[in-house]
Design a protein around this nucleic acid. Structure first.
Lengths: 109, 109
DNA sequence: TCAACATATGAACATCTTTGCATATATACC
DNA sequence: GGTATATATGCAAAGATGTTCATATGTTGA
């Protein structure tokens, strides 16, 4: 586990890089599509509704950022999540997003 | 709690937007700097090592995305996290990042 | 070997974002 | 009111990113 968060400069940059990868709708869809198990590039292309070429471009970035893992089976290439952190992080963010406004503090004088 | 993740198109886009906000090193530093309690813009400017103007620009975006909350005290404006989800999400991602490589599966034939 | 299928890559283009600078607003104190 | 401090905003330039298209690589089976 982790007691506290204190990011040094490098870690901050590296972490931002991970978030940047998830910050693109198509890429995020590719990741979430892999939450229920490995998906082939073909499946992902159909699910995401974008060109196969574009899917591959995004998958390459996600692979490089270790947000997705690749393995081959015959002529298909499958992608899945490397660990459970991404999953729980997605859940947390989704909760945050779905939460109603709490601290709006309008300053109308 | 949340049983499963199934994002519709809109939620996906919205969630990606949140990640995009965290995907910029300076902005991520501003958010993490607020993890230990409210920080004034002045403090944040010193901590982040960028111009006050730029800090304000980023704070505005973080505010709009409800990743930070704003409240005024005298001539100072303080920022802090609106809920605990962002915190736990950051922890999860940090763990993911610090984890050693698991699934590299080199295909060298 | 060849053709057919599945995936990956390179380069050019269009777009979006970050940044810096100047300036505007807001608050406090005299 | 006027001045100093604290924060916010508008705009243009510079830089980074997503997308498309064409093509390359890798795999299977005849």
């Amino acid at each position: 586990m982790l007691k506290s968060i204190s990011l040094d400069r490098d870690e901050g940059t590296q972490l931002a890089e991970l978030f940047r990868l998830l910050g693109e709708p198509n890429r995020l869809r590719l990741v979430t599509a892999c939450l229920d198990g490995p998906r082939s590039v073909g499946e992902l292309t159909a699910l995401a509704g974008i060109s196969q070429s574009l899917v591959s471009q995004h998958l390459r970035l996600l692979r490089a950022g270790r947000l997705l893992r690749q393995h081959r089976a015959g002529r298909r290439v499958y992608y899945d999540l490397p660990d459970c952190h991404v999953r729980s992080m997605l859940i947390n963010m989704l909760e945050h997003m779905r939460e109603p406004d709490e601290g709006e503090e309008e300053n109308e004088s």
